[in-house]
Design a protein around this nucleic acid. Structure first.
Lengths: 196, 196
DNA sequence: TTTTATAGTGAATGACAATTCAGCTGTGTA
DNA sequence: TACACAGCTGAATTGTCATTCACTATAAAA
């Protein structure tokens, strides 16, 4: 028998994140990923079925971690819906703070994975949207949130906005610290643009 | 001499919008675009330098029309900054109301065109962001807008949110009419989620 | 030490699709 | 009628990778 030389599976996945972030999924070459990971091209296919499997694995791991915590948060009865929205936003940004490349892959390739409604990633995302809607309805029931907003428009605007601020941060990682962005987003979601 | 048979240039561009919208730029085949336009594959290259030129032409025409009107709006002194924000949103959505495919191309391919900071499209977009920031600062000066929001975060959240609600509309064109989405977005931008 | 099973390699293969170009077509002109 | 010439064609060319697989290396077992 031959021993495995270190954790190639993880090294390849990390390399994939870097290369996908830099070139985008479609222009990224499997050979470049292998080279960055320090393995031969063929080794990628020992651990992952094909190029697409690299992308889906990245997203599945991310969503699994995110939704596990979110479900717990939504269930809680000791915090109000407003604090739940805050928790969603906090948690979302916290997943990327130490990994701007992961953020870029997430925002740039999100759509093509969700487009395929059969995939695991689409199911995770649908579950996430359902949670967001639930919180919104809870907020309306408790007379905290503005009832005149359409739930779907609210959630789509929110997710689109968050993806885009995350992208800007990841593209120019040095400019504005992520926690400042996070606090601004939370404030804007609650109060909008107009001075109170 | 031989006469040109109808407006192939425009037919090809329209076909490109359809095919890009359906498959995404990277998976779209030039041959499919030619077939849909009712011309031979080679004819595409009589009118456009390459596949990418199709995409940039679509965006340049769109941005040219949008920014021309926007510049006029921002200059106006008879309306307040709030009404200017409304005008930006109204105009943005109105450009797509009769063409969901164009909306899909716009939201899905926007980023790869802006990434290349040298291109014409990136310049149009930078100009647009500058206008948005200007309106925001005018609103703060006039004590209408909340001064605690970071301009860049405001504009990034706004553009990301608008792109995403537009995408949802274009993907399921029958569900919610675009003018209802537009009004919800305007309301949310102004007042946020919390009941007043 | 030899055998064997698994890990890893990277050049070769094959598929796919952007782009080209040699030739065909139709129209105006002489 | 015949020539010229721009418009148009689509099969052939070409480049680019994703994926494969015949081969090598290594470590445990015999």
């Amino acid at each position: 028998m031959r021993k495995k030389e270190g954790n190639k599976e993880q090294a390849i996945l990390n390399a994939a994140i870097q290369v996908f972030a830099q070139y985008g999924y479609h222009k990224a070459k499997v050979t470049d990923i292998a080279e960055l990971a320090g393995v031969a091209t063929g080794s990628v296919y020992l651990y992952y079925e094909n190029k697409e499997a690299l992308l889906t694995t990245i997203f599945e791991q991310l969503w699994q971690a995110y939704t596990a915590v979110l479900r717990e948060t939504v269930k809680r009865t000791d915090i109000d819906p407003l604090q739940k929205i805050d928790a969603i936003v906090d948690l979302f940004f916290s997943m990327f703070i130490s990994n701007p490349s992961l953020a870029l892959v997430f925002v740039n390739e999100h759509h093509q994975l969700v487009k395929n409604k059969r995939g695991t990633v689409a199911k995770y995302f649908a579950g996430f949207l359902e949670l967001a809607e639930e919180i919104y309805r809870e907020g309306v029931r408790k007379h905290l949130f503005d009832a005149s907003i359409d739930v779907r428009i609210f959630r789509d605007f929110l997710t689109g906005g968050m993806r885009n601020v995350l992208r800007q941060w990841a593209d120019h990682a040095t400019t504005t610290p992520l926690d400042r962005i996070r606090d601004n987003v939370k404030h804007f979601i609650k109060h909008g643009l107009i001075k109170r």
